[in-house]
Each structure stands twice: as structure tokens, then as C-alpha cells.
Amino acid sequence: MLKSSFSAALLSLGLTLAQPAAAQNSYFFPAAQASTFDSKIPTPEQFLGYAIGTHYTRTDQIVAYLRELDRVSDRVSLRTIGTTFEERPQVVATITAPQNQQNLAGLQQARRALVDPAQPAPDYRKLPVVVSLNFGVHGNESSSSEAALLLAYYLTASTSPETQQWLEQSVITIDPLENPDGRDRASHWFD
């Protein structure tokens, strides 16, 4: 029940973030108090130097912002899963509670055991749900990767009890660009 309400809340947050617009937390996160964000975590606007929605953010800027979140927060780890035909990195950010970050290998092993009928069933109450969010399938989707940046910021910077609970009970992976080459082709054309 709790995990299904979490999934519904995360979907609702994702849909809210996909709306176009100005770049202030009060606009993108109207229900959040300004004090519920860790000021040490840079917003996309602070990092990029422009408001989300005013520019088509390039692949290198998206990757650089996620690297910065990885650098400044113990909630985020970023890994490169490959490179594109045009040599752009393909990355996945994993966002979860710090204790889950420290035990990602153990959590992966526990999840792999789920498919082995010879293994005993785990205590599902202790095993976080894995949520995979993938953005930017088509290169000309102008808002998809912007929404990924806002979601990554929110999950990294929010100090609300609700967000803390989400991160303790889940491991969230964000692929901000499934098509980096197409994204850069479109961003260069638009910009």
C-alpha cells in the first residue's frame, strides 16, 4: 500500500515537473516551502546560468549538472553506462537515501536473488523498490531532459519528511537522455 502511494506520488511529481515555464522553486514546486530545500544543492538555474525552459539544455550541460549533484550530495551517484555513436556519454543517476547508496551492491544482489527459486524470499519490507525514470527518447523533446534535471534537483535537495521516506523506501534511477545525439542536434538547431 505504501509503495503504491509512493509510486502515485512520484508519478504526480514527474507530471508536475513536465509543465513548461519559469525557473523558480516556487513555480516548479508550489507545495514546497523554500526552507525545505538544502541550500548547498545548486538549482539547475544556479548551475546552468539560465532559467529552465528558456534554453534547450545541451547534453554536456545535463551531464555536468548531474556530476555536480553527485559531487555535492551523498544521495546521488552517477555512472556512465556507455557512449553514443557520436561519442557523447550516456549516464544514469541513482538517487536514494545515503544508507541505500552505501549498500547499492548488496541491494542489487538481493534483487537478483528474487529470480532464483532456490534462494529464500527476502524480507520485502526491507528491500527498497526500484523506480527507473527515462527521459529524452526523441532528440526533439524539448522539455523531457529539463524535467529530469528538475526531478533530480528535487530528490537531491528536498529535506521534507515525505521525500526522506521516498528515498529510504526506494532506489530511483534517472536516465536524463536516452538519445544524447538527437538532443544535441535539436538543441543546436533551436539555439
Rank of each mutant, 00 (worst) to 15 (best):
A93H: 03
G53D: 01
Q90W: 07
V130Q: 12
S132N: 15
L155Q: 12
G136C: 10
A105W: 09
G53F: 00
F135E: 04
L114C: 13
T94Y: 06
E168Y: 01
D74T: 14
T159P: 02
D175H: 09
A9F: 04
A23G: 15
D116M: 04
T159K: 12
I95K: 00
R75L: 02
H188G: 12
I174C: 04
Q101F: 01
T43W: 10
L167F: 00
L10D: 06
I81L: 01
S143C: 09
A32P: 07
N103V: 05
A148L: 00
F135K: 04
N25S: 14
S145Y: 01
N100R: 00
T80L: 10
Q33W: 04
Q109P: 13
L177V: 08
L10G: 01
E168D: 13
A157D: 02
Q109A: 14
Q19W: 05
Y27C: 06
S12Y: 03
S39F: 11
L66C: 05
V91Y: 00
L2I: 08
V171S: 07
L15A: 06
Y27N: 14
N100Y: 03
Q24I: 12
N103P: 03
A147N: 06
P161A: 01
T80Q: 07
Q33I: 05
L2W: 12
V72L: 05
N103I: 11
I172K: 01
E141M: 00
L167D: 04
A118G: 13
G139E: 00
L167Y: 05
Q46D: 15
A148C: 05
T43K: 09
D60P: 02
A21L: 15
D184A: 06
D175G: 12
A105L: 14
P128S: 09
E146H: 07
A8K: 09
I41K: 11
P180N: 07
Y124W: 11
V130R: 11
F37D: 07
R111L: 13
A105V: 13
Q19S: 12
K3S: 14
L107V: 04
Q99E: 14
Q102T: 11
T156G: 05
E162V: 07
T94I: 14
V72C: 12
H188E: 13
T173H: 10
P20N: 06
Q46L: 13
R71W: 09
P180G: 06
K40Q: 14
P30W: 00
T156K: 01
W189N: 13
S39N: 15
N134S: 14
M1W: 11
L69G: 03
S170H: 02
Q102C: 11
S35P: 02
A157T: 05
R88V: 10
Y65T: 00
Q108D: 14
A118W: 03
T163R: 07
Y50C: 09
F47V: 02
V131L: 14
F85R: 14
L149Q: 09
V137P: 03
T156W: 08
T94S: 13
L11D: 03
G49D: 03
L127A: 02
A186Y: 12
P161K: 02
T156N: 00
V92W: 07
S170F: 01
T80P: 03
R67D: 07
P20W: 02
S170T: 05
T94D: 12
S158V: 08
A9Q: 11
I174Q: 05
L78K: 01
N140A: 14
E162P: 10
P122N: 09
Q90K: 07
P176E: 02
N100W: 01
P30T: 06
P180H: 06
F47W: 08
E168C: 07
